[in-house]
Design a protein around this nucleic acid. Structure first.
Lengths: 101, 101
DNA sequence: ATTACATTTCTAGAATTGTTGAAATGATGA
DNA sequence: TCATCATTTCAACAATTCTAGAAATGTAAT
């Protein structure tokens, strides 16, 4: 019974963790070229790669980023469309709607 | 050791739960007058009030809404400033920044 | 004072999440 | 084929979160 609210909650959940927020920042900073887990790990003080992988796949599952293999490596990029989507959810429900800001 | 990223993660966490997203919607829809837990519960098919209280205080703690007692009742309102704050976080980091949207 | 109503706090159990070592998979070059 | 590097999956445990019954608190009317 997956409705829209469920999906949106999942995206917020992916953003609700400080580690993933760090990853998110790094992804956005490297959105042009994409960035590999190994590079992300380095930038995060050698954060454990299996844990990183766990977070990256969670973020990918909710559509917050996408992965593309290139030889041995996998390049991750943020999915700006999804980011805009949830921004819209917040704005539409709040400041664009009947909300008294 | 509370930094900015911690706070932002907490707000996203408050939005990461379907029940709270439902509450959030109702709050926004009644932002002009405010709304009481009892009313919210009614609108949510008589959702248990103690559980509702738990969610409301969580949301209040992260600054997503505010409460004001008026006699027997407590009126809750969304905090649009906070909503705008996290919207800004998403936009600044993504579509306003170096992100290739 | 007592009653009634609105809301919150306390408590404990069930479910979910985050973490990491170890093993597995995928891709490349020697 | 073998060795190596990049990444993911598996398994198990600790920590956190959600839930709701029961008790407590706050407010007002009688």
């Amino acid at each position: 019974m997956t409705n829209n609210l469920t999906d949106i909650a999942a995206v917020f959940d992916a953003l609700s963790n400080e580690t993933r927020l760090q990853i998110f920042r790094i992804l956005v900073e490297h959105s042009k070229e994409g960035i590999t887990p190994t590079e992300i790990s380095s930038l995060m003080n050698d954060f454990p790669r299996n844990t990183l992988s766990f977070h990256l796949s969670l973020m990918t599952n909710v559509g917050l980023c996408s992965a593309q293999r290139q030889g041995k490596q996998i390049f991750y990029k943020p999915n700006c469309q999804q980011i805009r989507e949830i921004t819209k959810f917040l704005l539409t429900d709040c400041c664009d709607g009947g909300c008294v800001c």
